[in-house]
Design a binder for these strands. Structure first.
Lengths: 340, 340
DNA sequence: TTGTAGGCGTTATCAG
DNA sequence: CTGATAACGCCTACAA
C-alpha cells in the first residue's frame, strides 16, 4: 500500500507537508499543494484511517447495534437514514446484530470498543424500552426506536405512536364513523398500547360510547413467535349484522389480513368498510387495492436524526436527557371514506 | 484507554508477552498466561484493532456495498447472513449504500480502501448483472445476488430463479392445471426473464399448448419507479368465462394483488383459483390467507455463503471464476390445490 | 512556510 | 520461554 512517505518522496517534500495538504491545514503554498496533490493522484494514495485513528483516538466510525434486523421489514429504512447521514458527514457505519441474545450483545460491545468507535446507535426493531448492558457502555450511545428504562440515562429518539393513532382516529371520526372495530397489536410492543390508548382517547373525546367499539386482540405471545388471530378476528368482527363501518388495525400487516377477510365476506373497501393501518409499510400500504390509509412511521428520519443526535453527543454538545419524539403523519389513501 | 503496556506493567511481563497471550501464540507458560489474563480482566483491556491493522495490514473487517438497501424488504436477510458469518468468524462488518449512484459508489470504494478492508461483498438488491467500477476495485470482491458482466472477473453467488420457477410450474402441472395465467415481473430484472423462461419450458415439456397460457406484463419502467399494472391485469385475466385455473405471479407482492383481484371477483383461493408467487417474502406469503405457495429465495444463505466465499478469496484459496448458484425450493402452502 | 523528532498501540524479528 | 528493539502510517509539538 502506498503511504504518506511515498507521496512525500515523489512530491519532493516531507511527509508532514503531505499530511497538511491531505487534512487541509493552513500554511502551505499553493505551489506545494499543487505538487502534493499531483503526487497523490499519481500514486492513488488513500490515507490509512487506522493509523489516523491511533494518533487521534477517533475512528470517525459509528456503530449500529440492532436486535432483530430483517425480521422487521422496515428496519432497512432506519439503517438507510443513518447511512445517508454518515455518507454526508464523512463517517463510516459499522453494523452488528444481536438477535436479542445478551451474549452476542456483550460481544458486539467488545468489538465496538476494539474498533474505538466514536459512538453507537442502539436500534430497537420494535418500539420498546431498553436497558443497554449497564456497565458495558462507555461509548456515547443514542437509543433509536426505544427509550431508556427508568434509572438509565441515554438520549433517545422514537416515533409518536400515540399522536399518530390519535390523528388517525380523528380522521375516521371526521368521516362520520362511530361504530369502529379495533384489532390490537401484540401488547408486548410499546407502540401497541400507545396506539390503543390514543384510539380510546380520541373516541372518548368525540363522545363515542364504548359500546360502539369492538376491540379484539390480534396477536400475542413472544415477539417474533407470536400467535396470529387477525384474520379470524376480522371475520368475526365483520360477519355480524350491525358490523362496524370502520376497522382500525394495529399495523399495516394486520390491515392486509383485514382486507382479505372483508373481501371474502363480499365487502368492498371503502364502500362498505373503511380500513386503516399503521406504519405505512409500503409493500403492504401501496400493494393493497385500494391503497391503505395509515399513519407513517418515520423510520428513515429516526435513523438520520438519531445519527445527528449521536454526533452532538460525541462532540459533547448533546444532552443525555434528550428524548426526541417524531410525528407519525396520517397518510390518507383510498381505503378510508365517508360513511354513507 | 488502557493499552497493552498497562497490562504488561500490572502483570509484570513485557508487552510482547501480553501480545502473545492475547493472540494465543505458543511458547508461554501456563503460569504467565494466568498472570496476564488476570491483569487483562482487572484492567478491562481490549486490544486496539486499528493499531493491529497498521502492523499486520489486515483489518479483519469486511464491507458490504448495497445499491438499494431497504427498498427491497428482504435485503435484511442477506445482511443478516453476512453478519452471522462474521460474528462466528471474528470479523466485523462495515455497511455502505450507494443508492445506485456511481459517484457514491466511487466514494464507498475510497472509504473501504481507507479502512483497508480485507474484502467486500457487492450486494445487488435485485438479481442482475453488474460491472463494479473497473479499475477501482483492488480489494477481493464477491458479487452477491448478481454475476459479473462479460469481461469482468469476479466470483459470484446468486439464486437459481430458473430452477425455482421450473419446479413451481411443475407443481401446478402435477395438480392438473393446464390453463395457466402468468404475470411477469419488470423485464429489467434478470430474474424476471429466467422465471418466465422456466415457466415456458416447463409447460412446453408438459405438452401444454401456448394457447392455453395467458401471459401479461405486470410492471415496467425503471427499477424502483416502475408502473404497476398487476391488479388490473389480474382482473382482466380472471374476468373471462374460460379463465385460467391457476395464476403464476412474478413475485409474492404481485400475488398479493392477484389475491385482491380474485377475491373482489368473488373467487376463492384455492377452490376456484390457484395462485403462486415467488420469493417467499414472509410478510406477504404468510400474511395472505390461505398462505401462499411460492419458491423461496435463499437470501440468508446468499449472504452467509457469500461471506464464506469471500473469506476463501481473501486467503488466496477461492477462484475468481466461481459462480455459485443456490436453489430456490418450492414451499407448498394453502394457495395451490388440485383442479376439480 | 516547511521539516524533524517522537510517539500512538500493536506486532515482527531476533537475541537472550 | 521471554524480552528488547524496530517498524507500521500518521499526527502532535516544536524547531528552523
Amino acid at each position: 500500500m502506498v503511504s504518506i512517505k511515498d507521496v512525500a518522496r515523489v512530491a519532493g517534500v516531507s511527509d508532514k507537508t503531505v499530511s497538511r495538504v491531505v487534512n487541509g491545514e493552513p500554511n502551505v503554498t499553493a505551489d506545494t499543494i499543487e505538487k502534493v496533490k499531483l503526487a497523490i493522484a499519481d500514486l492513488g494514495y488513500i490515507p490509512n484511517l487506522a493509523a489516523r485513528s491511533i494518533r487521534s483516538n477517533r475512528s470517525y466510525t459509528i456503530g449500529i447495534v440492532t436486535d432483530f434486523i430483517s425480521t422487521t421489514p422496515y428496519s432497512g429504512d432506519i439503517v438507510r437514514g443513518v447511512q445517508d447521514w454518515a455518507s454526508a458527514n464523512g463517517r463510516t457505519v459499522l453494523l452488528a446484530n444481536t438477535d436479542g441474545d445478551p451474549v452476542r450483545e456483550a460481544n458486539v460491545w467488545r468489538t465496538f470498543k476494539a474498533h474505538r468507535l466514536d459512538g453507537v446507535l442502539h436500534v430497537a426493531m420494535y418500539h420498546r424500552t431498553v436497558a443497554p448492558a449497564a456497565g458495558e457502555v462507555s461509548i456515547p450511545t443514542v437509543l433509536v426506536n426505544s427509550h431508556a428504562e427508568d434509572g438509565y440515562d441515554y438520549p433517545s429518539i422514537e416515533p409518536d405512536d400515540f399522536g399518530g393513532s390519535y390523528a388517525l382516529t380523528e380522521h375516521l371520526i371526521a368521516l362520520g364513523h362511530r361504530r369502529i372495530g379495533y384489532i390490537r397489536l401484540n401488547p408486548l410492543l410499546l407502540g401497541a398500547n400507545q396506539r390503543l390508548d390514543a384510539f380510546l382517547a380520541a373516541t372518548r373525546a368525540a363522545g363515542i360510547p364504548e359500546a360502539d367499539l369492538v376491540i379484539r386482540l390480534g396477536m400475542e405471545g413472544p415477539i417474533g413467535r407470536e400467535a396470529n388471530y387477525v384474520y379470524q378476528q376480522a371475520l368475526e368482527i365483520l360477519a355480524v349484522p350491525d358490523r362496524p363501518t370502520a376497522l382500525v388495525c394495529g399495523n399495516d400487516e394486520m390491515a392486509l389480513q383485514a382486507y382479505l377477510a372483508a373481501l371474502s365476506l363480499g365487502l368492498r373497501v371503502p364502500d362498505n368498510l373503511t380500513i386503516v393501518g399503521f406504519d405505512d409499510f409500503r409493500t403492504v400500504s401501496l400493494g393493497l387495492k385500494p391503497e391503505l390509509t395509515t399513519a407513517a412511521l418515520p423510520y428513515y428520519e429516526l435513523g438520520r436524526q438519531g445519527a445527528d443526535m449521536l454526533d452532538q453527543l460525541i462532540q459533547g454538545k448533546g444532552s443525555k436527557q434528550e428524548r426526541r419524539v417524531l410525528a407519525c403523519p396520517v397518510v390518507v389513501r383510498g381505503s378510508s371514506a365517508a360513511i354513507r
